[in-house]
Design a protein around this nucleic acid. Structure first.
Length: 271
DNA sequence: AGTGCGGCCTGTCCGC
DNA sequence: TGCGGACAGGCCGCAC
């Protein structure tokens, strides 16, 4: 389940192998993803040089001189840096063969990911155009959240997981940030104070930063681009700890569901 | 306009 | 041991 930290880990992991490399060949093994992998990728990309790798929300953007390859890893996607041609499994969708001999391989068993190609300004792409600020954008602040939340009746957890509000906060880190900020996941977004939104912004940034430092959260299938797991799973204070003791107060952690997603919370620490 | 839900997918785990 | 079903969940597209 790559969330923002896992995407950032992936971006940094592939960067030294991919930056400045010319694409020799694109191999589409299994085009079925959220949308079929467009043939234009195969036609347009070879011969072009990867000039930069950016991340916007959970999209990875491989910039070339003629366009931009947009990658999304969905729920179960991973990018691996392989030193040479390696036998492909049934969930290996696309290989980019680079001038340095590296195979950049996209694997995505659950097929929620995407590979897209655009020659327009990528930030104007329909998938990216309406996204909210990055968590570290100065525009993302307690005042911003508080202002946006006026008259919002939805649960605060759903509110901060809405990519139009802020990007990159998936289920794991939403749970962790709300725990740190002492806010109950089901509290109405419009009934959280300005001061507590300041706290929540700090908590979101802190938990994402720590997860990046730990190499991301490996629960089931996330591995870094070199195949090694991340270590943040050990630092999770609330996620998947239902029935266990809260590390802050000792109360039993509970769980509930909102929007078909599991929330974990401490009823003593979070109000 | 804000809100919530269905659907897309497959691997894993649990209970019978 | 085998099998069905729940679950994992990002996020688009749609209905209300």
């Amino acid at each position: 389940m790559p969330e923002l930290p896992e995407l950032e880990i992936t971006r940094r992991g592939i960067l030294p192998h991919v930056l400045g490399q010319r694409v020799e060949q694109v191999i589409i093994r299994q085009p079925k993803l959220r949308w079929p992998v467009p043939q234009t990728v195969k036609n347009e990309l070879p011969g072009q040089t990867i000039e930069g790798i950016a991340r916007r929300a959970k999209y990875l953007l491989l910039h070339t001189n003629r366009g931009c390859l947009i990658l999304h890893l969905g729920m179960s996607g991973s990018l691996r840096v392989l030193p040479a041609a390696t036998p492909a499994g049934k969930h290996d969708h696309v290989d980019l063969v680079l001038a340095n001999g590296i195979y950049l391989r996209l694997r995505d068993p659950r097929r929620f990911g995407a590979v897209l190609w655009t020659q327009e300004e990528v930030q104007k792409h329909p998938l990216l155009a309406r996204l909210g600020p990055e968590p570290w954008d100065p525009a993302f602040s307690g005042a911003y959240l508080y202002g946006l939340a006026r008259a919002r009746r939805a649960a605060v957890k759903n509110f901060i997981m809405d990519a139009r509000v802020v990007v990159g906060v998936g289920n794991i880190y939403a749970n962790e940030a709300l725990f740190r900020a002492g806010i109950h996941p089901n509290r109405e977004a419009g009934r959280v104070s300005h001061k507590r939104y300041e706290e929540l912004v700090r908590a979101i940034r802190a938990v994402l930063e720590e997860a990046i430092q730990q190499g991301g959260t490996t629960l089931r299938d996330f591995t870094r681009s070199d195949g090694t797991p991340g270590y943040f799973a050990q630092a999770l204070a609330i996620y998947q700890r239902a029935g266990q003791a809260c590390r802050r107060c000792g109360a039993t952690i509970r769980k509930l569901r909102n929007l078909q997603r599991t929330s974990f919370y401490c009823s003593r620490c979070q109000r």
